[in-house]
Design a protein around this nucleic acid. Structure first.
Length: 367
DNA sequence: TCGATTTGACCGTA
DNA sequence: TACGGTCAAATCGA
């Protein structure tokens, strides 16, 4: 359970890095509202690199400290080495739900031994009082898509009528929840204003070995080439998720220079939209008025901002979505923030690249 | 037979 | 206490 206390020097360093990152993000935000050339000497590319470096440095400090504390406490919950769990498990409800004796012990004791299916379980849980712990402050991300399919295996476990909502919300969990302990869930709900679209909220990350079929993810080679020069940071900022079907193995930098290959597929939201070849689907309805003309790609960048409470309370997830239009040479951005399960969408505006070649060089993002 | 879905009930959180 | 997330019995379908 995340009861680690940050040493003062670490805390100061983290604060410094986070403040720097915030300031640079602010500059970038201002920059994104201006065409190139109207700003100072710092380019968006340079700022982006600095921001990434700043957060990466912060995260490496956190990881080093977390690993040292995790190792010393021999927490078996991180046995899979899933960094995302270590991070999201920084505390708060998520951590509670991960190691909650009820959910993770009593339920898992029963469900991990799922030998003959659920019928066996039913008789064991007549009294469900205190039998589960609701997740709180879990990492989440929301996508909007005309389909609920995302290439992953989900099992519906519930449906609820939501107050003031025209359509019910369906609840899905990963089919590998019990045999592999995967904690990923998602909620799907038709959008009231546009029933053809589904808003899907993904909660938690897959820790199972289900892989997205690569050919489904990218169909447009041009898009793919473009994407290959990006790394996508999910709401779990410790995980850099680039293309998975590329020959380039996605990597994240670990402490002591260790390079770990990340098998996690590209984020659902991205793969979903990319598989459709329509990045417009990435955008929440609030952004529909942007009217992008077939943007060639979409990029979702998210960053979990650790609050002052190291237990994970007051964590915010900031997601910045970019859409690049090769024809119009514009970049449109939007950002979302989520606190727990609450999400706000902020629409930023488009910028025109004009004749400027806007290319992201992966080497610029090397951490 | 077994996995998936439906649906009412239970339970935690705000 | 209302709302919403999850559970699990009943049911369906391959």
């Amino acid at each position: 359970m995340g009861t680690c206390i940050w040493p003062e020097n670490l805390s100061k360093r983290l604060m410094k890095e986070l403040v720097q990152g915030r300031d640079m993000a602010t500059q970038l935000q201002i920059l994104l509202h201006k065409p190139f050339g109207e700003h100072g000497s710092v380019s968006a590319e340079e700022l982006t690199r600095k921001i990434l470096n700043s957060f990466t440095e912060t995260l490496s400090v956190v990881m080093r400290y977390n690993n040292s504390t995790v190792n010393s406490t021999s927490n078996t919950n991180t046995i899979n080495g899933n960094i995302s769990d270590q991070f999201s498990g920084g505390g708060g409800g998520d951590q509670v739900s991960q190691v909650n004796p009820c959910e993770e012990a009593s339920h898992c004791d029963d469900r991990n031994s799922e030998d003959s299916g659920e019928s066996k379980r039913r008789s064991l849980f007549k009294d469900r009082r205190g039998c589960y712990k609701r997740r709180k402050n879990s990492q989440s991300r929301t996508t909007v898509s005309p389909t609920t399919e995302d290439g992953q295996a989900w099992r519906k476990y519930g449906q609820k009528e939501i107050l003031n909502a025209q359509y019910p919300r369906a609840y899905f969990r990963c089919t590998r929840k019990y045999d592999q302990g995967c904690r990923a869930t998602r909620q799907v709900q038709q959008i009231q204003d546009n029933p053809k679209l589904y808003q899907t909220t993904y909660i938690g990350e897959h820790t199972c070995n289900i892989m997205v079929k690569a050919p489904q993810m990218i169909k447009d080679s041009e898009t793919w080439n473009c994407i290959s020069n990006f790394k996508v940071i999910t709401s779990d900022s410790s995980r850099i998720i680039p293309n998975t079907s590329s020959s380039k193995a996605p990597t994240i930098l670990m402490e002591q220079g260790e390079v770990v290959k990340e098998e996690t597929p590209i984020s659902d939201s991205l793969s979903d939209s990319l598989s459709l070849g329509n990045t417009e689907d990435l955008w929440p309805p609030e952004l529909k008025d942007l009217e992008l003309s077939e943007p060639s790609m979409g990029l979702l960048m998210s960053q979990k901002i650790m609050g002052s409470n190291h237990n994970g309370h007051d964590q915010d997830v900031v997601s910045i979505m970019f859409s690049f239009d090769h024809q119009d040479r514009t970049c449109t951005s939007a950002s979302t923030t989520s606190h727990g399960l609450d999400m706000e969408v902020f629409v930023d505006k488009s910028m025109d690249f004009g004749n400027c070649d806007f290319e992201f060089d992966e080497t610029e993002f090397t951490l």
